[in-house]
Simulated scan of single mutants.
Amino acid sequence: MLAKQLGLKEDPNSSSGYEILNNNDVNFWILEFKSEKVYGPFDEDNFVKKRDELGISTSLKLRKIEDIK
Results as ranks from 00 to 15, higher is better:
17 G>S: 13
31 L>A: 13
17 G>E: 13
45 D>R: 14
56 I>N: 01
48 V>H: 01
39 Y>A: 05
24 N>E: 15
49 K>G: 03
1 M>R: 01
8 L>P: 11
60 L>D: 08
69 K>R: 13
1 M>P: 07
51 R>L: 08
54 L>F: 02
3 A>E: 02
44 E>Q: 11
44 E>K: 03
13 N>F: 12
34 K>E: 15
4 K>F: 12
59 S>L: 03
44 E>A: 02
53 E>C: 07
26 V>E: 09
58 T>I: 01
15 S>E: 07
42 F>H: 05
22 N>M: 03
19 E>A: 06
50 K>F: 00
54 L>E: 06
37 K>G: 00
61 K>Y: 03
4 K>M: 15
13 N>S: 07
38 V>Q: 07
6 L>H: 08
25 D>P: 04
7 G>W: 06
28 F>A: 06
14 S>K: 04
40 G>D: 02
2 L>H: 13
65 I>D: 12
66 E>G: 07
55 G>F: 01
1 M>Q: 06
14 S>P: 08
66 E>I: 02
21 L>F: 10
29 W>M: 01
63 R>W: 05
64 K>E: 02
7 G>V: 07
62 L>N: 14
23 N>A: 14
28 F>H: 15
10 E>S: 10
48 V>P: 01
48 V>T: 15
1 M>L: 07
64 K>L: 09
69 K>Q: 15
56 I>M: 01
65 I>K: 14
3 A>D: 05
50 K>T: 13
35 S>F: 01
37 K>M: 14
60 L>R: 02
32 E>M: 05
1 M>V: 10
22 N>R: 00
29 W>V: 01
64 K>N: 14
10 E>T: 04
23 N>G: 05
46 N>Q: 11
59 S>F: 00
17 G>Y: 05
42 F>I: 09
8 L>H: 10
15 S>L: 13
2 L>D: 11
